[in-house]
C-alpha cells in the first residue's frame, strides 16, 4: 500500500467533512475490496476515512412494509437475522452466500452497494426489490443507483447510511457462484407483489440491471416456459476467464427460470 492518512470518524457528518477536506479521500467500510485494491496499488487514496466507529450505521429495522439495513451492517449479521429471514428470506440467503465467513464478518451492505462490483450480490436485490439507497444527502431509487462498472450515482463526499428494501410478497435469489470466490458469475433475483414482477440481474453486465423483457413475460405468464420465449440481449455482457458473454446470457435465463420454479 502507498502511504495515506487514517481518519477514524465518529459521525457521518465528520466522515463527509474529512473526505471533502482531503486531496483524494476514500471511505473505508468493511475494506474487503478497498484494502486488497490498495495493496495491489490500483488505488492510492490520500486519506482513508473509517466508518467502523459509527454505531448509528449498524443495525436492522423491520417495519410493516420494509426492511432497513444500516450501511455498516455486515453480511454475517444480515445472514443471521431472524427479522430479515421473516420478512425477506431471499435476502438472508443472499447474504449467507457472499464470499466466505471471514468476508461475511467484515464486508458491509453499504460497501458492497457503493462499490458496484459487476459480480456483487446485493445490487441484484437492490434493483429487483426497488430498494432505496439512503445517503447523508438524499434518497436514491435503486433503479437510478448503479450506473456502470464500479460507478454509482453517489457523489464524492456522499455516504450511504442505509438501504431500505420494500417487503415483497415472494422473492428468490438464484446465483451461479464462481466456485473459488463465490462472486456471482450470474445472479438473478426475482420478486413478486401487487401484480408486479421484478427481475434483478448481477454478474452479467457492467453493473446490476433489471431484465425488463423477462419481467414483461412473467407478468403475462408466471412460468418458467414464459422465460424461454424471451431473448436476452447479451451483446454488452461481461467476458472474462470465468465465463463468456454467451454463457452468461444463457445463465440469466436459467437463473430466472429456477427462481420462478422456486416461487411457484
Amino acid at each position: 500500500m502507498y502511504k495515506f492518512n487514517y481518519v477514524k470518524a465518529d459521525s457521518v457528518d465528520a466522515a463527509a467533512a474529512a473526505v471533502s477536506g482531503s486531496e483524494d479521500g476514500k471511505i473505508l467500510a468493511g475494506g474487503m475490496t478497498l484494502l486488497p485494491t490498495m495493496k495491489q496499488r490500483l488505488a492510492a487514496p490520500s486519506d482513508l476515512v473509517d466508518l467502523g466507529g459509527i454505531d448509528a450505521l449498524k443495525g436492522i429495522e423491520v417495519s410493516g412494509d420494509s426492511v432497513t439495513i444500516g450501511a455498516m451492517t455486515t453480511h454475517a449479521t444480515v445472514a443471521a437475522s431472524a427479522d430479515v429471514a421473516g420478512a425477506i428470506p431471499a435476502l438472508t440467503e443472499l447474504a449467507s452466500g457472499i464470499g466466505d465467513p471471514q468476508v461475511r464478518n467484515r464486508g458491509t451492505i453499504g460497501g458492497s452497494v457503493a462499490n458496484s462490483d459487476p459480480s456483487a450480490d446485493y445490487p441484484a436485490a437492490v434493483v429487483a426489490l426497488g430498494a432505496t439507497v439512503v445517503t447523508n444527502k438524499r434518497e436514491i431509487a435503486g433503479d437510478d443507483f448503479f450506473l456502470d462498472i464500479f460507478e454509482t450515482a453517489l457523489e464524492e463526499d456522499e455516504i450511504i447510511t442505509a438501504v431500505r428494501f420494500p417487503i415483497p410478497e415472494k422473492a428468490a435469489y438464484i446465483k451461479f457462484p464462481n466456485p473459488a470466490s463465490r462472486y456471482a458469475v450470474v445472479g438473478v433475483f426475482v420478486c413478486t407483489g401487487g401484480g408486479d414482477v421484478r427481475v434483478g440481474v448481477t454478474g452479467a453486465g457492467p453493473c446490476a440491471f433489471r431484465a425488463t423483457g423477462i419481467e414483461d413475460a412473467l407478468k403475462a405468464d408466471f412460468s418458467a416456459a414464459a422465460v424461454d420465449g424471451v431473448t436476452v440481449d447479451g451483446s454488452e455482457f461481461n467476458e472474462d476467464m470465468h465465463a463468456s458473454a454467451e454463457f452468461r446470457t444463457s445463465l440469466v435465463s436459467v437463473g430466472a427460470k429456477r427462481a420462478v420454479a422456486a416461487l411457484s
Binding site: 487514517y6 477514524k8 475494506g31 474487503m32 484494502l35 471471514q102 468476508v103 464478518n105
Partner: peptide, 18 residues
C-alpha cells in the same frame, strides 16, 4: 485468520489502527 471481537476475520484485511 484471527478473531476480532469474537468474529472470525482475515487480519491481512484489517488495519492495525482499526
Amino acid at each position: 485468520s484471527i478473531e476480532l471481537d469474537g468474529r472470525l476475520v482475515c487480519s491481512c484485511l484489517v488495519l492495525g489502527a482499526e
